[in-house]
Amino acid sequence: MSDSVKTRPFTIPQFSATDYSSFFLAGALCCTISHGGMTPIDVVKTRIQIDPKYKPFGFVSGTRYLHSQRRPFSLANRGYEYWKKYFVTIAGDQETAVKYRTAIYLGSATVAEFFADILLTPLEATRIRLVSERGYATGLVSGFTRLAREGGVAQLYAGFLPILCKQIPYAIGQFTVNEWAHEVVFRNMSEETKKSLSDVSKFGISLGSGIIAGFAAAILSHPADTLLSQINKGHGPTGSMVYRLTTLAREAGFKGLFAGLGPRMIMTAGLVSSQFLMYGAIKDALGAPPGLEIHKE
């Protein structure tokens, strides 16, 4: 290993089924809590994307308009650790893992998100239909049932391609940028400083890294998020999904594809930062081991 690449020695942890269950439970709990708190912002963002009446509004004015028209209603992914460990194992040794850490981050986020999206797509289609059509159903379960009954599997998975285009860049921004933000911070600290970090300092680093990752996730995934909202609303021509997406993108233009980005950046920064903070806290409470780190020192 060259002198310019210094790494902290690590061993690949042998996570048990209980450990992965703790990771899953921590991820599920933090996502449920954080998404629930951000639902009002998501409602406004989606309305700006798909409702012409909302085009002139920003987040604050859009929120006021939404409240004047209707009462917002509440709507009630973590294989990343598994796939990161899997790809580190394939790398074979520490030097190789650190050298190709970006590829490992990208690959882990992409594969984990792909499998998660198989389950997510029908729920996302239901959520957008609930947000975009007032009175469509009384909740997520009844909305899902109606959509499945009326449109079948084809309608539930109509947004699978655009949701992949949305969620994979989102996951890349969320996980990869968060890893890099932590690495940049710790690379500029001495070992003594790292060992003496207070809980407040650790919290600040996690919060700041999460906010930066949230901004990146929002920006990278927003064009596909806009198209997904349009597809699930039934907009666009008939034909293949690729044709519909390219037509909608051309009609929307650059400005249209990024409509609602401001509120979504606020929402996503809050979601991602809170999820990482809660994920760590819940894992600690459950006694789960720390995740695998392959940062370059």
Results as ranks from 00 to 15, higher is better:
205 I>N: 01
263 P>S: 01
163 I>S: 12
160 F>G: 04
94 Q>S: 14
57 F>M: 11
174 Q>F: 07
66 L>H: 11
276 F>C: 04
82 Y>P: 04
108 S>M: 03
174 Q>L: 15
164 L>G: 13
42 D>K: 13
110 T>Y: 06
294 I>P: 01
192 E>P: 01
220 L>I: 14
80 Y>K: 00
115 F>C: 07
94 Q>M: 09
136 Y>W: 06
119 L>V: 14
279 Y>C: 05
295 H>T: 15
33 I>D: 03
37 G>Q: 09
9 P>E: 12
109 A>R: 07
276 F>E: 01
231 I>L: 09
165 C>N: 10
165 C>P: 11
220 L>Y: 06
118 I>D: 10
68 S>Q: 14
125 A>P: 02
284 D>I: 08
193 T>G: 07
257 L>N: 03
239 G>N: 06
265 M>R: 03
221 S>L: 12
151 G>D: 13
66 L>A: 12
206 S>N: 10
19 D>W: 00
273 S>K: 00
221 S>E: 14
185 V>P: 01
58 G>W: 10
212 I>G: 10
207 L>R: 06
123 L>A: 15
108 S>N: 05
181 A>I: 06
273 S>G: 06
99 K>C: 05
114 F>G: 07
216 A>G: 03
123 L>W: 11
232 N>A: 08
255 K>E: 00
71 R>W: 04
173 G>K: 04
254 F>V: 09
71 R>G: 12
98 V>P: 00
15 F>P: 00
40 P>N: 13
287 G>P: 07
82 Y>Q: 00
156 L>Y: 01
54 Y>E: 12
139 G>T: 13
269 A>W: 02
208 G>I: 09
190 S>R: 04
184 V>S: 03
121 T>M: 02
101 R>L: 03
78 R>L: 02
93 D>E: 13
188 N>G: 12
290 P>M: 11
117 D>V: 14
74 S>R: 06
96 T>V: 13
236 G>L: 05
